[in-house]
Amino acid sequence: MGLVYALGAYLSWGLVVPLHFRLLGASSPGLILAQRIVWSSLFALALVLIWRARRPVPWPAPVRPRHALLGLSAGLIAVNWLLYLQAVNGGHLLDASLGYYINPLVSVGLGALVLGERLRPVQVVAVGIAALGVLTAVVMAGTLPWVALALAVSFSLYGLIRKVVGVDPTLGFLAETLLLAPFALAYWILTPEPSPREPGAVLLLALTGVTTALPLIWFAAAAGRLRLATLGLLQYLAPTCLLALSVLAFDERIAPHQVPLFGLIWIALVLYAADSWHAARRGSAK
């Protein structure tokens, strides 16, 4: 079942979510984000209440000072969601794809810098190749790939904080969305942009809560059942699907400066994935 959960999560992020948001293109990213947060908090709250009726849901006790970091992780995931919405509805799905290809390598760097995790030589080479790709793109285009880098950095920082906080994934997601909900609800009410009234559009907006929460829950379920190396390799399904959608379905074109960037990122990812796989096999053989 772990593989099924992982495929459900990554294919949702790579195919279902971008297509869902593309159908909401008539609404602004700000309004979609506000409603996404509100509906996600309601959906997560309903899930937790149902689970508590069936069995106790673990919550860290006592609440520790580090749990206050959930406020920061909530802000980071909100920024990440807004950037993603702008990329999808603005015709920049390639930038979103690139951002989530870079994300694992940024996470590796943060683990080394912040948590003191030691990098194996191949991982150092992979991060260096990825950095070279970004530098090459900057030189060729004369500007940084801001959207891709912002997506990668915001999600990597989010993952770092969630690792430090150490809270149950579903409860942590509920806490984050509840923290964001008052601001989202205020924006939803006060924005001069009218909310869609057509039943189909209202339903699509309400379903953002489901397409936001379920993949995260499936991911957490997969993480408890699969080896980390397997989960790490599968994560590249999402940006690969985004890349295919951008080129095949939405007629985006890879710019000249993006060619070496994607190429070097893929080389880095192959090295990183192969090294992780071999390390996991050596560990299991002991």
Rank of each mutant, 00 (worst) to 15 (best):
F183S: 14
T212F: 01
A222W: 04
F173D: 02
L234M: 13
A126Q: 10
L214N: 03
R118A: 15
W146A: 15
R197F: 02
G116L: 10
P121M: 12
L214Q: 03
G200W: 12
L214Y: 00
R118M: 10
G116I: 12
P192N: 09
F219H: 12
A130H: 09
Q235G: 09
A206M: 02
G209S: 09
Y158V: 07
V210G: 05
P145I: 00
P199Y: 04
A229L: 02
A220M: 05
G172W: 02
A152F: 05
A213P: 03
L160G: 04
L119P: 13
V124L: 14
T177M: 15
G128M: 14
W188E: 02
V139R: 13
L185C: 06
T136H: 06
P215Y: 03
L135E: 08
A130P: 10
R118Q: 13
R118T: 13
T211W: 02
E117C: 01
V153D: 09
L185E: 04
R162H: 04
L160A: 01
P145Q: 04
Q235K: 08
R120P: 09
T212R: 00
F155N: 01
G159H: 06
I129E: 00
I129K: 01
T230E: 14
V138R: 12
F219K: 04
L149I: 05
L144V: 15
L157T: 02
V202H: 04
V124H: 08
V147M: 15
A130R: 12
L149K: 01
R118Y: 09
G166W: 00
L151P: 12
P145W: 03
I189Q: 15
W218K: 08
G200F: 10
A184D: 08
G224P: 05
L190C: 11
V165K: 12
Y236I: 01
P199F: 06
A229R: 04
A175Y: 11
T230F: 00
V165T: 13
T191R: 07
Y158H: 15
W218I: 07
T143F: 11
V164M: 13
R120S: 09
A150D: 10
E198F: 05
Y236M: 04
P196S: 12
A201D: 15
Y187L: 03
L205H: 09
Q235H: 07
V139K: 05
L185H: 07
A213T: 15
L233V: 14
A152K: 04
P194A: 12
V167A: 13
P215M: 05
V153S: 07
L233T: 12
E198M: 11
G142Y: 05
A221D: 11
L171Y: 05
V139T: 08
W218D: 06
L234V: 00
V147F: 04
L119N: 11
L135Q: 09
T230N: 06
V138N: 08
A222N: 05
L204G: 04
A152Y: 07
P169Y: 07
L119E: 10
L132Q: 00
A201V: 00
